[in-house]
């Protein structure tokens, strides 16, 4: 508290200076953009999928969107609900197919149908996989109140989806 008390006159002085002068900020914008970009490791052994290898500004150039719906078009309905639902679906699937999903979850919506595509590792038996497909479809269709279809592709090993190492 004492520290703040000491600081008070300085802040007042600074404030008055700011109010007096209307300066222009001429230096470059320093905001750092980091999301969806991966750092190069010293050993060059970080595996990246094709999706991860292309940063977000390459969407629609080198890679395409993970969610396909009409909510983001101009003047269309419930964009927020759709985004939150997509987020929930992604979390639910990565959790249900724990350590099995090798790619991003692709969510396509057509009319009232939700089609979910993903690449899954062949680490569990087909019986378990069939169970999980049914389980996921059933629960998601109950929560979303619309038919949900899972369209999975399986790979033998995690390394199959690796595009490059950095």
């Amino acid at each position: 508290m004492n520290f703040l008390k000491k600081l008070a006159p300085h802040i007042a002085l600074a404030e008055s200076q700011i109010c007096k002068s209307a300066d222009l900020h001429t230096s470059a914008v320093c905001c750092r953009v980091q999301s969806g970009r991966y750092r190069i490791t010293t050993k060059r052994n970080r595996p990246l999928t094709y999706e991860m290898a292309n940063p977000p500004h390459f969407i629609a150039h080198r890679k395409s969107w993970n969610s396909w719906n009409t909510s983001t078009l101009l003047d269309s309905q419930r964009p927020a609900q759709t985004a939150v639902e997509d987020l929930f679906i992604r979390k639910f699937i990565t959790g249900t197919w724990h350590a099995l999903t090798c790619s991003e979850i692709i969510i396509k919506r057509q009319h009232n149908t939700i089609r979910i595509a993903s690449i899954i590792r062949q680490a569990i038996s087909p019986r378990k996989m069939y169970f999980l497909i049914g389980y996921t479809e059933e629960l998601l269709s109950y929560w979303m109140q619309c038919p949900v279809t899972l369209e999975l592709q399986t790979v033998a090993d995690k390394k199959d989806v690796v595009f490059k190492y950095i």
Binding site: T49, F58, W65, W68, A117
Partner: peptide, 23 residues
């Protein structure tokens, strides 16, 4: 489907998420 540096072949259809994305 997919972009690669010059000279390399584009990723094949197996385990290719880009092909699953596009309608």
């Amino acid at each position: 489907q997919g972009f690669t540096e010059r000279g390399a072949a584009a990723p094949s259809k197996f385990a290719n998420a880009e092909l699953m994305k596009i309608p």
